[in-house]
């Protein structure tokens, strides 16, 4: 998958649509592409836990030094953080948008100055825990923040898994929609 990288480092946000069975694969592709270009990736995950993503990224040849995780599912599922986690912030609940937002803000401060991409995996897994109204508010918050800081981002979502009115709102927050060819 070819993300349109902007040489002027102007922050661009994309909605990447994928088949549900290819969502994890798309995640790995996006992270690899970003980190291969020398950017730092912040992965907000409400779908896969840190421990699974870490192994997948390693298997995919991704340099984990350039990846920061915000894991909103592990602590919710097993009640504790993964032991020995590196570059990972744990949020206690995938519906805790406040803590998620704080985690993103803190991380962006921490890695300020570097070229950063923020990846949300995924819009659909967030919808299990929050309403579309709250989802769009959160995404509006994140995308606005990224644009102010000239930071790029990717929202991963399942194709045909979002209702038309919600999709229309998301389209208003992003600069482009990329549909998976697979």
């Amino acid at each position: 998958m070819d993300l349109p990288f902007n040489e002027d480092n102007e922050g661009m946000i994309y909605l990447v649509l994928s088949e549900p069975r290819n969502l994890r694969k798309k995640n790995i592709e996006v992270i690899k592409e970003i980190t291969d270009k020398g950017f730092t990736a912040i992965v907000i995950s409400t779908n896969d836990p840190y421990s699974v993503l870490r192994k997948d990224y390693l298997k995919g040849g991704i340099n984990l030094e350039n990846v920061h995780f915000i894991d909103a599912i592990t602590k919710y599922a097993i009640g504790k953080e993964s032991e020995g986690a590196v570059n990972c912030t744990f949020v206690n609940n995938p519906s805790n948008l406040t803590d998620m937002g704080i985690a993103v803000t803190e991380l962006l401060k921490h890695i300020e100055g570097d070229n950063v991409w923020v990846i949300l995996d995924s819009v659909n897994s967030m919808l299990i825990y929050i309403s579309s109204v709250n989802l769009t508010k959160f995404i509006h918050f994140i995308t606005s923040k990224l644009k102010i800081l000239d930071i790029s981002g990717v929202l991963l979502a399942v194709e045909n898994g979002i209702d038309p009115s919600t999709l229309a709102q998301l389209e208003g927050f992003v600069d482009g929609i990329i549909k998976s060819e697979e």
């Binding site: 659909n124 897994s125 309403s131 579309s132 209702d163 038309p164 009115s165």
Partner: peptide, 22 residues
Amino acid sequence: EYIGESAMRLKNPVEVIKYNMD
């Protein structure tokens, strides 16, 4: 509107679970 929202929050998440388990 609610039915549309519920379909979105029911149908696809079930698929997500299925693919995760696969």
